[in-house]
Design a protein around this nucleic acid. Structure first.
Lengths: 200, 200
DNA sequence: TCGTTGCGAAACTCAGACGTATCGAAATTA
DNA sequence: TAATTTCGATACGTCTGAGTTTCGCAACGA
């Protein structure tokens, strides 16, 4: 989404400062991490926070949404390693990663934006989904399908529904649970409760 | 939160127009329903939409947050009637009410605000929780506890966790599921899947 | 060395919204 | 009728931030 093409041969003049670019992205994420919604982010605040002139921002991004889209794209989505010993353990690993990430203020705010401003900034949400959500979904789907194959999960299980239950329950805890940190063993409790079901 | 006290004897002068008050609240909810975040709402837009002078707003509310808090407070939270024939049926009723409400744009946006702007506008969220969330939570808690007592649910069930699973799963569907309306029988599927559990 | 381009800083114009004040008309009480 | 208060409309001064332009300096290729 940057204006400069990456493949073009640069002919003359001072090259664009990569440091400034990083600082701009970082300042943007920083401000988002302080609870700013997209509409409250101002280019001036970003420039000032990054120690950069507004010109330097406008030379790279033509508007705020482009910048935010790029900023969110830089967020890494490292999946937790899965031991593969049991489906239960792998599910706990995946859900515990969600719990740990929800403790990070920046992640929480990014999540808020992705969830609540989806209508206003569809490109933003689309990109966030692709970078952060889909890899996790695929990992969880694989674990559940393996569980069905090995008999650790019921054969007639609706995979998508299972994913919704696990993810939704963690999501609920990260958003609605009483304030304060989530219990360290939350993921374990969730997985066991969901596996067992509510019926006797 | 209105400035005028309700019990005072009014002595003289033109009384405040209740119609204007309603129009202001309605316009506020309307704009929220169009996807506006609190920070994007402008008093001028509200006044114009309500066909009202800015003065008329400022005479009643001293700032935007007060107005929005009042507006959200007017949202009704009618609980669905519960047949009481079986715990499964009652849970389906409760979850299906969530599904139906999520189809209403205004409700979706209010939900977004309550969830994502909780940090910035704590009074707003607090009020929303008390009016809309807590009655539902209590209703669901009662149903689950009844289920444990009658043996329809497992005796060692963690009630809070059960509520988190059911609510979270519906929440996930309303927020993340592929666009378009939710399946009419979604609540039924969710309840059955959660009751049965994922383990064989 | 020279032309070119990027840099941060500052000044600028423009739009939108805030919150206040003022207007004549309308609605009420005394 | 007179006093009082609200009504919608409009104008006002202020502020914030967008996006552009200009400046002198820095960093690059030729």
């Amino acid at each position: 989404m940057t204006i400069q093409e990456s493949g073009t041969a640069r002919s003359a003049g001072r090259p664009r400062s990569e440091k400034a670019e990083k600082a701009i992205i970082e300042a943007t994420l920083d401000l988002i991490g302080e609870g700013m919604g997209v509409s409250e982010l101002s280019i001036e605040a970003i420039a000032s926070r990054a120690g950069v002139g507004k010109t330097t921002i406008y030379r790279r991004w033509s508007n705020k949404e482009d910048l935010v889209v790029d900023a969110l794209s830089t967020l890494k989505a490292p999946l937790p390693p899965l031991s593969g010993t049991s489906v239960r353990d792998d599910l706990i690993s995946l859900l515990d990663a969600m719990r740990r990430e929800s403790g990070n203020v920046r992640n929480r705010c990014v999540m808020n934006i992705a969830m609540s401003e989806a209508d206003r900034y569809p490109r933003l949400t689309e990109r966030f989904m692709k970078r952060a959500v889909e890899p996790r979904r695929e990992a969880m789907r694989a674990v559940i399908e393996r569980g069905i194959a090995t008999g650790e999960l019921r054969a007639d299980l609706d995979v998508t529904m299972g994913m919704a239950i696990l993810t939704g329950t963690m999501l609920w805890h990260t958003k609605w649970a009483p304030p304060g940190d989530l219990a360290p063993d939350l993921a374990e409790h969730v997985v066991d409760a969901v596996l067992a079901g509510m019926a006797p």
